[in-house]
Design a protein around this nucleic acid. Sequence first.
DNA 1: TTTT
DNA 2: TTTT
Lengths: 162, 162, 162, 162
Amino acid sequence: MARGINKVILVGNVGNDPEVKYTQGGMAIAKVSLATTSVRKDRDGNTQERTEWHRVTFFGKLGEIAGEYLKKGSQVYVEGSIRYDKYTGQDGIERYTTDIIGDEMQMLGGRGDGRGDNAGSSGGFAPRRDASQGGYQKKPEATPAPAAAADFKDFGDDDIPF
Amino acid sequence: MARGINKVILVGNVGNDPEVKYTQGGMAIAKVSLATTSVRKDRDGNTQERTEWHRVTFFGKLGEIAGEYLKKGSQVYVEGSIRYDKYTGQDGIERYTTDIIGDEMQMLGGRGDGRGDNAGSSGGFAPRRDASQGGYQKKPEATPAPAAAADFKDFGDDDIPF
Amino acid sequence: MARGINKVILVGNVGNDPEVKYTQGGMAIAKVSLATTSVRKDRDGNTQERTEWHRVTFFGKLGEIAGEYLKKGSQVYVEGSIRYDKYTGQDGIERYTTDIIGDEMQMLGGRGDGRGDNAGSSGGFAPRRDASQGGYQKKPEATPAPAAAADFKDFGDDDIPF
Amino acid sequence: MARGINKVILVGNVGNDPEVKYTQGGMAIAKVSLATTSVRKDRDGNTQERTEWHRVTFFGKLGEIAGEYLKKGSQVYVEGSIRYDKYTGQDGIERYTTDIIGDEMQMLGGRGDGRGDNAGSSGGFAPRRDASQGGYQKKPEATPAPAAAADFKDFGDDDIPF
DNA sequence: TTTT
DNA sequence: TTTT
């Protein structure tokens, strides 16, 4: 019986173009690193800065959207949960990983790349140019058109009046 | 184009047994009041306490679960969004309402009712006894068995490995 | 005794330049409207869009920062709580208001990549030009220099190692 | 310049009595494991359950409160941030840890009805009996009386009217 | 290691 | 209207 809430909310900048691969069943898995930086004053009055790099994974349709629209430098809102895994490396040593499994994503800042070279775009968010070659594995079949970059939230129950 | 995040997280105690009604299409709509109380010290060192009463609405399957399992006094986690509405009363005066539209709910505290009279129950959360008469409107048709009280989160994509 | 969590997380666009006033004790109170828009498909496959306008209030130092840095159109992250109030208008009619009391704020989108080509700028977010005249009431005394626009989070305990 | 939001919200059950130690400066550091369990149906209709064990650390006053009031089995709400660290073990191997740094905590479920029959108790949550011996290190000096177990949120600015 |  |  389920017990508990495991929720993560991140706003940060993506450190790399997404890596996208597909399961045998054709489900997309997109991975990015996401940086969140915080500042504080230490007791000497000096400003201290610290950056956490989150490994964020998106599955399914959201993985496809992330693979299309996120790129190095994008500022993004991510909501998801923390997942801890353990594996044994080829060297026989047990290692641990922590991943954020994203279940909602929203691009921020209009022209989130900051390279500003897509002037003339009416919206600000464009698919990455190399998206069709991107990732390290092709999707085996035709990709359904990604949902508008708009809001990536899944609205489950179509009956619900907003 | 969607822009924005509108997210509310509440943990509080329910002030009343849920009111449940059904749309013509058979969708459940459950409403409860939820109290969240905060304390702080004022500048005189006195403890000040303030309670907010949130109007929480659950639609669809979650509405059915809420109608079955929540009752006056239940401690509950609710995640949802804020919705503002405006209507004109019969007196011709415009009025405004604020509702929390719940899209996740989880009961807290094991036997959240405190009436402890359902001894023998193996779990602690039992449907309200009067659920079948509850609310102010009957559901027009047979209610599908509610999901286990367990975890009320909708897991959208069955492909996603946890 | 306090019971409950009342937390709101918003990402949206500001609808107006902030209104700032000061209490007799000199505490800033800044108010803005913040829009969050969501989209969904209705059962006919049409895209439906709905915008909520949140009334957001910032107190104290955060109110000063909001008053300086937010302006109409700013995209912003806000974390806070919901507060419901009731008052009786001059017409003798009871009315209700809902406000989001912000306790954390972070500006978004301002060339978040850091590769900005206007090197020499300290960061991308500039105070509003008319900030010194802004608002509808002056602060009675000298304003302490606002914290760097950077991260508006209050780090309470200086002892805590990040 | 700070950029980003790194926020975690957990509701779960504590797996062990807290371990509390103190820095040379006398600051408490309390650590607990917190379990969050989720369920979902796999594609064969079988119920799958998965538990994440979060390492949660509380510093300062909140660490003292956690050390006093949390115990194995407690249900608790925690809000904080994720922190990743890397260290080299005595075996010379680099290892990584992930911790949740708690900055708000609230105990849940403590006889949420309030009609409790052990009148005379001040409230439902009692300090752990062995708190004075608890943890694996003593605090070097007198502990300031912990804040009421009530609400552990730090209200920063005493001027703020709720 | 928790909880249901 | 809840809860402590």
